[in-house]
Nucleic acid binder design. Structure first.
Lengths: 152, 152
DNA sequence: GGGACTAGTTGAAATTGTCAATTATTGTTC
DNA sequence: GAACAATAATTGACAATTTCAACTAGTCCC
């Protein structure tokens, strides 16, 4: 390889990395996670526990822990710890799934619903802050593109 | 709050989460990270070490460790460990920065450049696999939108 | 009823993240 | 130019997270 070729091969490595969707995903996520955790800290939540709470605030028959694990891409044992914590704080309940006695269904308590409302507002504020330079249309488009990667 | 309002407030919690850019970012990143690590494992790299190597393959005067830490959003002490590892394997070198004797400049060796070329191919294949349902234009658009979040 | 599989749980081990302290060097200020 | 605050890299300690294997209880299928 000629000297100039080697130089050319080197010079665009950084360019490549900043064009790399995977890298951008990682960095954007790191910023988003930090901002989210900071915004939720005042409520005693992290992004993880907030996500569990949000899903537990879903339909009356909330998600099973297996569904939580799959949706949040966590090990089932991590879900146990998250649910334990939120349950100890009276924000969610484990209810036996009437259709499958092995499974628990996770539902929010009244306190959980109330906290979720506040947490949602905080999370949305943090997100607006993070995406300040994106228009509403752009944000929707970003969500749509991400959804096709996140849920293949 | 009337019963129907409570039900309505609950029923869109899940919808909200899957519309939440932060959540989608987290999930897409988790998939991307897993795929990337799997693709790079055969070369003895992870996404982290690959990123350091890629940046070290940058211009002749590579990045300082502080720049690596900032770019990859890592604690400086983590960069030390990553650079130690790659250096032990003869893939990169620490060179004293002539302009600032406190700083090291991290540059790839010939072996490092060679491995990076193979790793780049593997990473790109994994990414194509992950983004299979996105067109080239959509991927470019996604990269542009992510860049505006990742580098505010 | 027996055997394969699944949901949740526990606990241990490995990896990663966070933080304070230290050394060497730089930049700034009087 | 001597004194002082600030910065780059490093070390080591500690917390948090991830990953796995094993276990119990329940389901599904034959």
């Amino acid at each position: 390889m000629a000297k100039s070729d080697a130089a050319a091969a080197q010079s665009d490595a950084r360019a490549r990395l900043t064009d790399d969707v995977s890298f951008l995903l990682a960095r954007a996520n790191a910023l988003s996670l930090a901002a989210g955790n900071a915004a939720l800290a005042a409520l005693g939540l992290k992004v993880r526990s907030y996500s569990v709470l949000a899903l537990a605030c879903d339909t009356a028959a909330g998600p099973s822990q297996r569904e939580l694990a799959e949706f949040l891409r966590l090990d089932p044992s991590q879900v146990v710890a998250l649910v334990d914590d939120l349950q100890r704080r009276g924000l969610i309940e484990r209810r036996p799934d009437p259709a499958d006695r092995r499974a628990n269904v996770v539902v929010a308590t009244a306190d959980g619903l109330a906290l979720h409302a506040r947490a949602l507002a905080a999370a949305e504020a943090a997100e607006r802050d993070l995406h300040g330079n994106l228009s509403v249309a752009e944000r929707a488009q970003l969500a749509e593109l991400l959804r096709r990667i996140a849920f293949p």
